[in-house]
Design a protein around this nucleic acid. Sequence first.
DNA 1: TTTCATTGTGGGAGCGCTCTCATACATTCT
DNA 2: AGAATGTATGAGAGCGCTCCCACAATGAAA
Lengths: 341, 341
Amino acid sequence: MPITLEEIAKLSGVSRSTVSRVVNGHKRVREETRKKVQSVIDELNFQPNIAARSLAAGKTGIMGLVIPAGVSALFSDPYFPQLIQGISSACNKRDYSMMLWVDEPNYRLRTIRQLLYSGLLDGVIISSMLMDDPIIKSLYERHMPFVLIGRHTELNVNYIDVNNQAAANKATSFLIDCGYSRIATITGPINMIAGYDRYQGYCTALDQHGLALNDSLIAEGDFTEVGGYNTMKQLIPHNPDSVFIANDTMAMGALRALHEAGLRVPDDIGVIGFDDSPIASLTTPPLTTMRQSPYDMGFKAVNTLIEIINNQGRSPQQIVLESELVIRESCQRKEFAKEAI
Amino acid sequence: MPITLEEIAKLSGVSRSTVSRVVNGHKRVREETRKKVQSVIDELNFQPNIAARSLAAGKTGIMGLVIPAGVSALFSDPYFPQLIQGISSACNKRDYSMMLWVDEPNYRLRTIRQLLYSGLLDGVIISSMLMDDPIIKSLYERHMPFVLIGRHTELNVNYIDVNNQAAANKATSFLIDCGYSRIATITGPINMIAGYDRYQGYCTALDQHGLALNDSLIAEGDFTEVGGYNTMKQLIPHNPDSVFIANDTMAMGALRALHEAGLRVPDDIGVIGFDDSPIASLTTPPLTTMRQSPYDMGFKAVNTLIEIINNQGRSPQQIVLESELVIRESCQRKEFAKEAI
DNA sequence: TTTCATTGTGGGAGCGCTCTCATACATTCT
DNA sequence: AGAATGTATGAGAGCGCTCCCACAATGAAA
């Protein structure tokens, strides 16, 4: 049987209103009274009923997180666990709670309804959806406070992203600096913004260095290990001397394919990944990659969302994080090692 | 501005009560009335306010999921993503929603309070905590409906687990059947029930086959890749001819250590893992392992929890799933291949 | 016809909280 | 001293829903 405000009030000899003030840290309470009430609260482990509070105040202290189920990378890539960890950590710090929806296509309508109309959520964080995801449009139209993980092309909305184009450009340029010139790429799904942007960065880097795009050296992957493996096998016959791969998980698969094909990394072929996921330093050879931090993105997304909730009039804000090149051994040919640094 | 029952009532020319009946699928409504009301509901996309419903009915349709943050394996192991996916999928199917807490020690008190006293949750699923986790005791004492992922030794509570001891026994016995005899093990953390049970299974298998336990061949890991790598390095000087490793992620690390040491798998040393995680078939050589399905565990946990919620008097029920041996190449020495099958 | 279930519908209380407003009291200024 | 200000507290309404009870309408049984 849960305890109510009223009971705390009775036990500490004040009114319900005063207890409410103490719980919510209002100023207009005498220090003496506050202490008395607080001690009763602590003793009984009182926690206000969220439903009642929510009903009365129109706020719940709960935010939603939506991650896609379609992405099979969800299983094998540490991206989402780290993102969730960052969000969860920030929620704890800011005294929010989190509801999680794994967006299965079959239950999409249910998800949207709950996000928008149940009144349970103060705001929503949406992660890495397809570019034209209808959920985003729904949230936008209903004026539900939300922030995207990953930028959005059409709508002027709040988002947090890494500078994928610049980072991919840097990665590709690094391969060129290392002395490679027949540079392939394994992209992510092109209908995901991160996949698209990293591909664009690859293109601009080649262009800036006067290298021509070569369709036979470009192949679309799906962010999974097996995808990386298969796509690499497809690329090998076209004799790339290096390859920029849009995430580390696919890079693992690509390394496996190269190993099987008897190609030595980095001497026969240079490899650079993206993410600096925990496995990047553990591959053979250790993987050079662009570092991003899903944990930080999650953490910042929460703080941004809370700002939005508290100031609904605010104009949308875009946060773009920088990505850092982490040099290991997968694209450092002996003869170029010095110049590249 | 969300829509209320009252507005639906007005628009369809009936009372609030009748609309409520329609929404909740009560019988005592004339078919004609039901249709009329339903059409208004559909048209306006009406979704009942969960807070109000919860306050009035004492049920929320929300369950909590608590996973530990301490386990750094959270980042690199697909176990939790799969578990979450299973839970989420079952929640969708059963029309429940899920709140997620990553249990950070700093915020433990907050977490417990919210789980128990906020009135938000109909029940809780707790995953893979330490054996003596205080959260479990709190839930138990407060009679909060909950189910554990992983068995509990002291309390008679609802749980779902794999038969870790039997599975570890089978794995170890398989190494013996393959002709190995100097069998090492890398255990999980012994203060986690899964770590403990898999270690026990290893011991009983040796015992049943008349092999002596050898302390220098037993080392405790932490379920991470790096942990597996370091622990394997520690074991190599004692010349095991095979090793049972308590999860696949550590097995990956161990394979890396063996590769660096110039030992060939399976000819110099046999390796068997646990989980059949997605990477198991992708290692070199592909990993023989015991298959378990965190997805299924999550899915079943939800169904069990809902039963408990609907029938609080029910006596606790323990579900133990079987684990299946998946034979690949990491412990099949050429000369024994035939006999082992 | 009268009686009694049975079915469909509406009205009202109340879940536990927040928030506005009223009130009691203390303090300062003229 | 009286008025004006400020501070601490209480009372009451109401958030949107469910659930119980009342009651009307229908049909079956006596």
